[in-house]
């Protein structure tokens, strides 16, 4: 045995497929360094809330366990979290197009650890969207029962996992560096049809019917339920579960194909 062979035996493989806190920290820093990401995740939801939710005649009307300003705040937090998590997941596309994914295959990082970091960072950014939008609401007249602040906030955040899966799915499907420019208009449409910007009652019956099948509709109903006090309809719950299954399934399928490609 020579030194080289000994070295081969002594060298170890990192634990957890190389998942580590330095990686998560640097990935998060990268995200926050991207001006466009910050604008979409933090600035836009707050701005939309201030525009549509505050200082209006309806702002302080009751919406159940809180006021209409709070209702709009929850919608905008969901919108921001959706943009954050989709964008975070879709980073996969950027990294594939820049050859970074290939570079990572020359390290011990496992594919599962890689995708876990992407989803975790996407969810952390989503949490930032929710916290900042809720802080803006608290400072400008949104009122809810204390427990409702917590429950809706957590619901929005956990629910945005659906869109982290959507982002990863699209990230593997679209081999483009400008993936969010493609997804942006689609997300705006989802938000509109989900009733985030405009109550569905104000849409034409045709639109309303279509809206019930789009991916934001169910989640929007569910996250507002603790505030309005109305239990979400079955259609909404089924909508969330079906889209979650579609996006997670799609992400797993594309991810599997990607790692098998040798």
């Amino acid at each position: 045995m020579t030194t080289a062979d000994l070295a081969a035996n002594e060298r170890s493989v990192p634990r957890f497929g190389s998942f580590n806190s330095t990686l998560v920290r640097l990935e998060l820093r990268r995200m926050l360094r991207n001006r466009r990401t910050v604008i979409f995740s933090v600035v836009m939801p707050v701005l939309f809330f201030l525009l549509f939710g505050t200082g209006k005649s309806y702002s302080d009307e009751s919406a159940g366990h809180g006021n209409v300003a709070a209702f709009i705040m929850v919608s905008m937090a969901l919108y921001g979290a959706m943009l954050s998590t989709t964008g975070g997941g879709a980073m996969v596309a950027v990294e594939r197009s820049q050859g970074w994914s290939r570079q990572l295959r020359l390290t011990p990082l496992s594919s599962t650890a890689y995708i876990s970091v992407k989803v975790l960072v996407a969810m952390l950014l989503g949490a930032l969207s929710v916290v900042v939008t809720y802080a803006a609401g608290a400072l400008t007249g949104a009122h809810m029962d204390t427990s409702v602040w917590l429950v809706t906030g957590v619901a929005v955040w956990v629910g945005s996992l659906v869109f982290a899966a959507f982002g990863v799915f699209m990230g593997y499907l679209l081999p483009s560096e400008n993936v969010m420019q493609i997804l942006g208009p689609g997300l705006a449409l989802f938000a509109f049809l989900g009733g985030l910007f405009l109550p569905l009652e104000e849409m034409s019956p045709t639109f309303r019917t279509i809206a019930h099948f789009t991916p934001m509709y169910g989640l929007n109903e569910v996250v507002h339920a603790p505030l309005t006090g109305d239990a979400p309809g079955w259609a909404a719950v089924v909508n969330v579960l079906v889209w979650l299954a579609v996006f997670v399934g799609g992400a797993v399928w594309r991810f599997g194909r990607d790692t098998a490609r040798v």
Partner: peptide, 24 residues
């Protein structure tokens, strides 16, 4: 490798710290 394989939005040192974090 010949081309690619780098993240443009990290600094040189960050790229190395990230890579280092992946090895035992």
């Amino acid at each position: 490798m010949q081309t690619g394989g780098l993240l443009k939005d990290l600094t040189v040192e960050e790229t190395l710290r990230l890579t280092a974090s992946l090895f035992a």
